[in-house]
Design a binder for these strands. Sequence first.
DNA 1: TTGTGAAACTAACCTATGTAAATAGAGTAA
DNA 2: TTACTCTATTTACATAGGTTAGTTTCACAA
Lengths: 246, 246
Amino acid sequence: MSQALIRKLQNFVKLSATDQRALERAGSERVRRIGPHEDIIREGDKPSSVMLIVDGWACRYKYLEDGRRQIVGFFVPGDICDLNIFLLKEMDHSIGSLTEVLIADISRESLETLMGVSQRIAQALWWDSLVSLAIQREWTINLGQRDAVERMSHLFCEMFLRQQSAGRAQISGCEFPVTQAELGDATGLSTVHVNRTLQQMRSAEMITLHNKRLVIHDLDALMRQAMFNPNYLHLGRDGAHLDAND
Amino acid sequence: MSQALIRKLQNFVKLSATDQRALERAGSERVRRIGPHEDIIREGDKPSSVMLIVDGWACRYKYLEDGRRQIVGFFVPGDICDLNIFLLKEMDHSIGSLTEVLIADISRESLETLMGVSQRIAQALWWDSLVSLAIQREWTINLGQRDAVERMSHLFCEMFLRQQSAGRAQISGCEFPVTQAELGDATGLSTVHVNRTLQQMRSAEMITLHNKRLVIHDLDALMRQAMFNPNYLHLGRDGAHLDAND
DNA sequence: TTGTGAAACTAACCTATGTAAATAGAGTAA
DNA sequence: TTACTCTATTTACATAGGTTAGTTTCACAA
C-alpha cells in the first residue's frame, strides 16, 4: 500500500521490518478514492490530517484573484503533504487531483505514534519534508531563471527521478498524466508555448510525451539541457549513520 | 537579542516568560558577525547548526552552471533556517549576507533542549517552518504568474509585513538593503528592467526605494496592485488554543 | 578635494513568449 | 454512427522584458 513511501524513505535510511510495518499500517488506516480533476482540499479549508498519496497524481495550486493559476508542485505516489499541517488554521492553497487518486489520511495521533515507533522513521519523515522544501526552492529557480525548454526539461528530470526513487519508473521513462494546459500552469508558460516547446523537444529527440507517458530518449542529455543538478533531491542515503540494528 | 524571533512567534501563540527566556538563551549562545556580501554557508558544505538571524539581511541563493543566479528567499532578523537541516549531508544551495549580519548558531542539542522546554515553543517553531514553506510557494507563484510590477509589489508587501510581524517596520515603510541587481536575482528580472519598473512604481507614487529604505505610500493600493493575499503568512494567532498558563 | 568603485540610470535594439482565434484529433456516452 | 467535449495543434501578430553598451550619481577613502 505505502510501498512507494517506504521505497522513497529508504533513500535516506534503511528501515527495519518493524518500521516498515508501522508505515504500512499508518498508510492503510483511512484510505479514500478521489476522481480525476477534483479538489482534495481547498484554500480556506481547515487541514485536519496529513495526507499520503498512495496512488495517482495530484498537485498543489493557487489562483490569483484574476484567475491565473500556478501549480506549485506535483504529488506522486509516496508523497506526503506537510507534516505539521494541522498547526495551521486554514489552507493558503488548494490540492487537486490530476488522475484518479488514492489518499491515505493520517491523523495527528497516528502520525505521533508513527514518529514514536523509531527515531529512524521520525528522521526519515523530517528528511522527506526537507526534500520537499528543497524541491519548492528548485521550482522557484526554475521559473526565475530557465527558459521554456530548460524549464520543461528540468521538470521532466525531476518527476522522472522522483518516481524512480519511489520505485515507480522504468528505464525508458515514467508516467506523466498531465495535460499541456496543466504543464503550462506548472511552468508559467502559455499552452501555446508549451505545445511549441514540446514539439521542439520531440523533434530534437530528447523526449516524447504521449498517452500520459513520458519517454526520455537520453537522460544525460536532458539533464545537461536543463542544467539539472540532482543534489536537491538528496537521494544519497544521507542518514546512513542511522542504520541501526532493528 | 532574539526579540525579533519572539515577536514573530507570538503571532502564532503567546509565549510565557519562561519560553521567552529559553529562546533568548538559545539565541545568544554562539553569535557571530558576518561582513556584508559574504557567504555564510555554501552549496556543498555540511550544515552543522540551525542559524538564527539576529540582525541584518541575508539571502538564500543558488547558481546555475552557466552563472545565472536566483535568490530564492530573504532572511531578516528573527528568521531561522530549516529546523532539521543537520539531517542533510550537504547544502544544495548557499546562504549569503546582504548587509552586515549577526547570526546565532543553535546546535542540535540546544535546539532539542529548546523544543523540550515547552510544547508551545516546539509548535511555534514548527509553525514558523510551515510559514517559510508557504513563503517559498508564494515565490514560485510570484515568478510564474506575475509581471514585473506585480512581482516587485508583491515582494515589497511581503518583506514589509514580515518585518512588521517581527516588530521591525515603521508605519511608513521598512528597511530594504537590497541593490537593484540583487532585486533582479530575486525576481528573475534583469537589472535594467528592475530599474525601469522601480521608476514606474515611483512615478505612480506607490513606493520609493532609496538609501536602503522602502517607503510605501499606500499599502492597500500596493497590495491590490500585487494581488497580495497575506493569508500565506498565517499571521492570525493560529495557535491561540495553545495559550496555556505559564 | 579629488579619485575610485559600486550602484543607479539610459537608450537602442532584439527576441522569447503571450494572445486570440480557429482547426483537428481522440475518447466516450448515447 | 452521431454528437459532444477535452486536448492538441496551428497561424498571425503583439509585447514584455532581455541585451549591450554605455553615462551619471553617490558614498567615502585618501
